[in-house]
Protein backbone atom coordinates (compact mmCIF):
# COMPACT_ATOMS: atom_id res chain seq x y z
CA UNK A 1 0.00 0.00 0.00
CA UNK A 2 1.36 3.41 -0.87
CA UNK A 3 1.43 5.65 2.15
CA UNK A 4 -0.19 9.11 1.91
CA UNK A 5 2.71 10.23 4.05
CA UNK A 6 6.29 10.74 2.92
CA UNK A 7 9.29 9.78 5.00
CA UNK A 8 10.67 13.33 4.98
CA UNK A 9 7.32 14.65 6.22
CA UNK A 10 7.55 12.35 9.22
CA UNK A 11 11.11 13.52 9.80
CA UNK A 12 9.98 17.16 9.65
CA UNK A 13 7.12 16.53 12.05
CA UNK A 14 9.45 14.71 14.46
CA UNK A 15 11.72 17.76 14.45
CA UNK A 16 8.80 20.11 15.14
CA UNK A 17 7.79 17.86 18.05
CA UNK A 18 11.37 17.64 19.37
CA UNK A 19 11.68 13.89 18.89
CA UNK A 20 14.60 12.15 17.22
CA UNK A 21 14.00 8.96 15.28
CA UNK A 22 16.32 6.27 14.04
CA UNK A 23 16.09 5.29 10.38
CA UNK A 24 14.22 2.13 11.30
CA UNK A 25 11.75 4.08 13.45
CA UNK A 26 11.27 6.56 10.64
CA UNK A 27 10.33 3.75 8.26
CA UNK A 28 8.02 2.11 10.76
CA UNK A 29 6.26 5.32 11.80
CA UNK A 30 5.86 6.44 8.20
CA UNK A 31 3.99 3.24 7.47
CA UNK A 32 1.92 3.20 10.66
CA UNK A 33 0.93 6.86 10.54
CA UNK A 34 0.18 6.44 6.83
CA UNK A 35 -2.34 3.74 7.71
CA UNK A 36 -4.16 6.05 10.11
CA UNK A 37 -4.28 8.85 7.56
CA UNK A 38 -5.42 6.40 4.90
CA UNK A 39 -8.28 5.39 7.18
CA UNK A 40 -9.06 9.05 7.80
CA UNK A 41 -9.77 9.53 4.11
CA UNK A 42 -13.18 7.97 4.75
CA UNK A 43 -14.16 11.38 6.11
CA UNK A 44 -14.18 12.57 2.53
CA UNK A 45 -17.29 10.44 1.98
CA UNK A 46 -19.33 13.06 3.86
CA UNK A 47 -20.34 16.32 2.26
CA UNK A 48 -18.95 18.72 4.85
CA UNK A 49 -19.45 21.85 2.78
CA UNK A 50 -20.76 24.59 5.07
CA UNK A 51 -20.58 22.47 8.22
CA UNK A 52 -19.34 24.42 11.23
CA UNK A 53 -16.34 22.97 13.05
CA UNK A 54 -16.90 21.91 16.66
CA UNK A 55 -13.91 22.39 18.91
CA UNK A 56 -15.96 22.04 22.09
CA UNK A 57 -18.85 19.74 22.84
CA UNK A 58 -20.85 22.36 24.74
CA UNK A 59 -21.30 26.01 23.97
CA UNK A 60 -20.37 27.59 27.29
CA UNK A 61 -19.37 31.26 27.04
CA UNK A 62 -17.81 33.92 29.25
CA UNK A 63 -16.45 31.65 31.95
CA UNK A 64 -14.32 34.01 34.04
CA UNK A 65 -12.95 34.28 37.54
CA UNK A 66 -12.78 37.43 39.62
CA UNK A 67 -9.42 39.17 39.81
CA UNK A 68 -8.32 37.90 43.21
CA UNK A 69 -4.84 36.90 44.31
CA UNK A 70 -4.49 33.39 45.68
CA UNK A 71 -1.56 31.73 47.39
CA UNK A 72 1.31 30.68 45.16
CA UNK A 73 3.32 27.48 45.51
CA UNK A 74 6.33 27.21 47.75
CA UNK A 75 9.37 27.88 45.60
CA UNK A 76 11.59 25.35 47.31
CA UNK A 77 9.02 22.60 46.84
CA UNK A 78 8.71 23.42 43.14
CA UNK A 79 12.44 23.76 42.52
CA UNK A 80 13.08 20.49 44.34
CA UNK A 81 11.23 18.82 41.44
CA UNK A 82 13.34 20.60 38.82
CA UNK A 83 16.10 18.68 37.05
CA UNK A 84 18.43 21.65 37.59
CA UNK A 85 18.02 24.89 39.51
CA UNK A 86 20.22 27.77 40.58
CA UNK A 87 19.62 31.03 42.48
CA UNK A 88 15.90 30.39 42.84
CA UNK A 89 15.52 29.78 39.13
CA UNK A 90 15.19 26.83 36.75
CA UNK A 91 18.50 26.20 35.00
CA UNK A 92 18.81 25.12 31.37
CA UNK A 93 21.74 24.63 29.03
CA UNK A 94 22.51 27.20 26.35
CA UNK A 95 19.48 28.61 24.48
CA UNK A 96 20.21 28.60 20.76
CA UNK A 97 18.06 31.45 19.51
CA UNK A 98 15.63 34.18 20.44
CA UNK A 99 11.98 33.34 20.94
CA UNK A 100 9.89 33.99 17.86
Amino acid sequence: MSSPLRREEVAHVAKLARLSLTDAELDLFTEQLGQVLEHANDMNSLNLEGVVATAHPFGLTNVVRSDEVRASLDRDEVLAMAPDAQDGRFAVPRIMGEAP
Binding site: A14, L16, L33, T54, A55
Partner: peptide, 24 residues
Amino acid sequence: MLGTYALSAGYYDAYYGQALKVRT
Protein backbone atom coordinates in the same frame (compact mmCIF):
# COMPACT_ATOMS: atom_id res chain seq x y z
CA MET B 1 3.68 13.04 15.44
CA LEU B 2 0.25 12.33 14.03
CA GLY B 3 -1.20 15.31 15.88
CA THR B 4 1.67 17.60 14.93
CA TYR B 5 1.16 16.61 11.32
CA ALA B 6 -2.62 17.10 11.47
CA LEU B 7 -2.17 20.65 12.81
CA SER B 8 0.72 21.69 10.62
CA ALA B 9 0.47 24.28 7.90
CA GLY B 10 -0.86 22.80 4.70
CA TYR B 11 -2.60 19.83 6.32
CA TYR B 12 -4.79 21.48 8.94
CA ASP B 13 -7.84 21.83 6.69
CA ALA B 14 -7.58 18.38 5.17
CA TYR B 15 -7.25 16.57 8.48
CA TYR B 16 -7.87 18.46 11.72
CA GLY B 17 -10.35 20.95 10.23
CA GLN B 18 -12.22 18.11 8.53
CA ALA B 19 -12.31 16.09 11.75
CA LEU B 20 -13.89 19.01 13.65
CA LYS B 21 -16.64 19.11 11.05
CA VAL B 22 -17.20 15.38 11.38
CA ARG B 23 -17.54 16.03 15.08
CA THR B 24 -20.34 18.48 14.37
